[in-house]
Amino acid sequence: MTSLPPPQTPAPASFPSTSNTPELQHSINKTPNEHTIKIGQWEIETVKKPILNGKEIDVAEKSLNLPLPEMTFGNNSLSLSYSPSSSSSSSSTSNDKDENGVQLRFDSMEALSGVATGEGWEERVGGGVKVSMAEKWSSKSSSNSFSGDSPIPTKPVKPHDWTFSTCYPGSVSGPSSFKPSPTHSLPLPLLARQDPILDRILFYDDVPLFEDELHDNGESILNVRIRVMPHSFFILLRLFLRVDNVLFRIHDVRVYHAFGSDEIVREVSGMEVGYDQVKRHLEKPSDLSPLTDPNWVYQKMLSLPSAPSQNGKPWPGLGKRVEMLRLPRSDELGGIKDGLESVKI
């Protein structure tokens, strides 16, 4: 009788071996608006520019059919390009990257395209937040995108999620894509380790994508951070939402890749907790400043049960999933090309 294989259980993503693996060469280039590192088969670039100007706002709002957040960094981005046939010591053309490589990208315009819009979006998508000023806020138009003190227009814009609660996970282009994986997880011990040599930070950036103060009644912030170490890179894209006296929401996208492996692991998770539940954990009830710290709020939310305070359809960002993308190898691509060349029409 043939014995069955043991059941699969979730295991951490590849934990890179540092004993026999030589450190990858890398080069860094920095300009006032762009920061780039080339390491192994990867080129990673962050772009940070001022918020959109008036003309750019008009174009973006027409394209998205959405009033933009007060501070929209529409030209900011984090992009990662993987070229199987290249390394930090050899160059490849952009055409090679487009045909054979994989690109990951995070930017504000793509993120805002995921904000719910249209009549009845609360029932169709879920996650509507109702407070005393909601109707006034939902009437916001491009004419008052810069200040909550601007007059409220008499003609409201089309309905939209005024909290900008996007569930954007980033975008992927190329021959590979993320697929659900019950057998992968992030290597948390590695990411928490702080070895001054093995885990030194070669490249770090924090890229703001948008911010809105919800007319001084909270805040909605989206930013993406990346750190590159000799053995791997790690990305955190976080949406932090605080609606005063109503709720907190956090939507996190974590991306991990160990150099030399052919896997990228992505964990997407979302939490929602009532405002008062978090507020009770303040050391000094009179000091509300910790409630504006996403990291402090996140740690408190981890210990609290998810308790949405709104009625209606739940916010779709709740829950957790783990996905894996398998990178194409240069030898695989070569085999594909050889096979195509042998085909005769």
Rank of each mutant, 00 (worst) to 15 (best):
E272T: 09
A111H: 05
M109A: 06
L241V: 14
N245K: 13
V115F: 07
I37V: 13
L198D: 01
D216T: 12
P22E: 07
A258P: 04
V253S: 06
N53C: 04
R227G: 13
K179D: 00
F73G: 04
T183D: 12
W121T: 09
R329Q: 13
K279N: 08
L214N: 07
P6W: 12
K38R: 14
H160Y: 15
K344Q: 11
G114W: 09
P153N: 06
P12V: 12
F234H: 07
K97P: 02
E263C: 06
N76K: 10
N100A: 10
L222M: 07
S232Y: 15
G335C: 10
E56M: 00
K279D: 05
E34C: 10
F234Q: 00
N245M: 09
D98A: 14
E61Q: 10
S261A: 14
V273T: 14
S143Y: 03
T46Y: 01
E263K: 11
Q299A: 11
P16D: 00
F146C: 03
R242N: 15
P69L: 09
A13S: 14
G127P: 06
E61A: 04
G218L: 06
L112I: 04
G118C: 14
D206I: 04
T166E: 01
P22K: 07
G274W: 01
T72A: 15
D293H: 14
P69H: 05
Y275I: 01
W137P: 00
L302F: 08
D338G: 09
E99I: 11
P196M: 13
N223D: 13
D107A: 08
L247G: 05
P208L: 03
H257L: 08
T117E: 02
V246Q: 06
Q25L: 12
Q277M: 13
D206G: 05
L222P: 00
S132P: 01
S132M: 14
L104S: 10
S83M: 10
T154G: 07
S90V: 14
A11M: 13
I235Y: 08
A111D: 02
S143L: 11
T46C: 12
F15S: 09
T183F: 08
V243A: 13
L239F: 02
L222W: 01
S139A: 11
R266E: 10
G40S: 13
D199I: 08
L247S: 11
R242V: 11
T46F: 02
P6N: 12
E341A: 08
E263F: 06
S138W: 02
E283L: 11
C167D: 12
N295V: 09
I51C: 03
G319E: 07
E213K: 05
H251E: 03
E43P: 02
L80H: 07
L318H: 10
F210H: 09
V224F: 07
Y298V: 00
S90N: 14
V297H: 08
S306C: 14
E135R: 11
I39S: 08
L80F: 10
G120T: 05
S181V: 13
L209S: 04
I37L: 15
E34T: 15
P316W: 06
S3T: 11
S138G: 12
P189Y: 13
